[in-house]
Design a binder for these strands. Sequence first.
DNA 1: TTGAAAGCGCTAACAG
DNA 2: CTGTTAGCGCTTTCAA
Lengths: 328, 328
Amino acid sequence: MSVTTKDIARICGISRGTVDRALNNKGRINTDTKEKILRVAQELGYKPDLLARSLSTGHTMTIGVIVFDIRNRYFAQLVNAMEMEARQNGFFLNISLQEKDPETEIELIDSLVGRRVDGIIMCPVNKGDKFDANITSQPIPIITVGNKISDGIPYVGIDESKAAYSAVEHIIAKGYQEIVFVCPPLHDREIENIYVHEERYNGYKEALKKYPAIKSYVIRRWDYLLKVEELYSNAKNRIAFFCSGDTYALEIIKLFRKKGIRIPEDAGLMGFDNIDTLEYVIPELATISVPLREIGEASVKLLINKINGDSAVNNLILPYHLIDGKSL
Amino acid sequence: MSVTTKDIARICGISRGTVDRALNNKGRINTDTKEKILRVAQELGYKPDLLARSLSTGHTMTIGVIVFDIRNRYFAQLVNAMEMEARQNGFFLNISLQEKDPETEIELIDSLVGRRVDGIIMCPVNKGDKFDANITSQPIPIITVGNKISDGIPYVGIDESKAAYSAVEHIIAKGYQEIVFVCPPLHDREIENIYVHEERYNGYKEALKKYPAIKSYVIRRWDYLLKVEELYSNAKNRIAFFCSGDTYALEIIKLFRKKGIRIPEDAGLMGFDNIDTLEYVIPELATISVPLREIGEASVKLLINKINGDSAVNNLILPYHLIDGKSL
DNA sequence: TTGAAAGCGCTAACAG
DNA sequence: CTGTTAGCGCTTTCAA
């Protein structure tokens, strides 16, 4: 097929070992032979077989990534940042999507490990002790992003709960007397890892404890729009909907637009994530800005450190910030 | 490190060859020994080293993908579809981003080939004979999507020029007397592969030939918003802006919103691509729907066929359709 | 400074 | 039905 070090060795009338030394500037080597080897390699259009090299050296310079899907803005931004950071460090990305299917996720991990990626960054959909043990027993470092598995497994993200807490305070400061927490993923809490959303929910609950006068309701269904409409109709006071993800808020904007409900005059709205779609949407959505680029970069850096065996750091909590917008 | 077929062989007191046959149901093998081998493999938690297998078999079951970036909705949707289709066929995706940098692109191709991917799908930023030769000389099949390199290299897409042609007719049918073609990429036509945009431009020009009474202007600058505003102010008749990508249209929507220019009352607007962001944007944008999912799937299928050596097909032109929207 | 040989883990061809 | 052997292309000792 293509040209190998063996060919070069044969043509130059020397051994493969020497060719290798020339090609990778290693060890002492005669300048003339080195030049000759490089010239021949050049002429023949030699390209190293990275697969064979990996088999021999034991590392592939590849990072495996497993996320839900990348049509999702959240992951598209995250993975884009990861790819750039990885490439700058000489690593490749092996991206695979589990589409929230637990079994696919397990298969993908095995598959990536089988391909000898040097480490994995994932947003897990599985959870629980058995899965925890699976991850821990893998021969390569694995770190999580978005959803957390357990304290033992490295995680990069923001303080979701605190962010949600501050969001609620912000809403209340705007004078709303009823707050609805829109969090469809809670519906799947038994079967899926929905760490982020649970944390956001915790922050929400925590904040409301401080304000017993505020009326509160939590939506945990995927047909949340029906409930949103109903709650809006029955509201006796100023009501705000706090969504545990911008995408839900976007759907509510569409709904309200259709129904002629004005934001924020008739109802307040707040999202979470600050996905880039918001840039083009009216009204400007109040939201929590999750630093996706920074999370992507930091997770790659952390993983590379772990791969090199020189990082004791486990959790990286980055700063978020609240965006006021015009929807409250 | 981890357990290999050699370990299994040793423990079962048989040869590696037999272990291999058991593990991959190949050739005739005694049922008892097979069971024993499988049991031991199971107990030891044997996972095949796919790298070694690839080195031996000569294929990696991996498809390399090179696109601009995946924050871009166009590519996010495209790549997402590719990943799903590939996985269903037992292939992995190796995604890398060139960020429109020609040199990075060349490096990425070499790198993917070096990693022995079985084939590549790319949206090229390079063009010209030299690049064409580079691609053709690679030892694996490469197909293009989005931008085309030459007729010799397989391409999957829509008839961009015809689509633009019909868009212009549609705009004219709505009674507009001035049309502005907003196509910033034309600015880079000398240095970059902007095939799609050139084709759209060709369709635009072709259509206008039929309507000599229509006043036309083409914007080829990245600070297009300035020019858009100027042309709008100077317009004597009903004017429409036809963008060669939805993202430009989205920016114009933002601009007009700020300036209080109403769409479509004061100016018409049409996009191209039908990216999913549009779903949440007001007004509903008239656009051309490019079947990204289908293109992604078809390109993967075509590539796999090429990898298996059984496809003579080169170009695949899929149907687009025009979306009327409320912006004209 | 260079050569020879062994090894990474798996597959495949050929004997037995 | 099973064992042996060679080989994929590169790296890495250890001698020379």
